[in-house]
């Protein structure tokens, strides 16, 4: 029983990550003000009925840079497996730079 618990906890602690999608936009010369946004959802037993968790990321980035433009955006979409078939985390992240508007 103890060894089973040990194996289970090892599974949870290991959590494998799979990168599904990545993209970049043009990188600006001004890179002094980094901004970032994350959208994520815990998925139990592969049940996920929509992907709305990524929809607020643009607004999050815009709020961190209210008077400028966000450029050089690196997006990543990753699936983190905590326990196969049962517990996953879907994570979308966007990192960019706030630059002054011309």
């Amino acid at each position: 029983m103890k060894s089973l618990l040990l194996i289970l906890s090892a599974f949870f602690l290991m959590s494998c990550t799979h990168l599904s999608s990545v993209s970049t936009s043009a990188i600006p010369t001004q890179r002094s003000k980094p901004v970032s946004a994350v959208g994520e959802r815990f998925m139990f037993m592969l049940f996920n009925f929509d992907n709305k968790y990524v929809d607020n990321m643009v607004m999050d980035l815009a709020r961190q840079c209210p008077k400028g433009r966000v450029e050089g955006i690196l997006t990543k979409y990753e699936v983190i497996t905590y326990f196969p078939l049962f517990a996953y985390n879907l994570k979308a992240s966007a990192d960019g730079y706030c630059v002054a508007k011309n």
Binding site: S23, F49, V54, V58, M59, C65, E71, G72, Y77, A92
Partner: peptide
């Protein structure tokens, strides 16, 4: 009826904060 949603790819273009807000 709901179906399961799988996200394959997502990309973001640059953001003009004024236009967004």
């Amino acid at each position: 009826l709901n179906g399961c949603a799988f996200l394959h790819q997502f990309q973001m273009s640059s953001i003009d904060s004024e236009a967004v807000m």
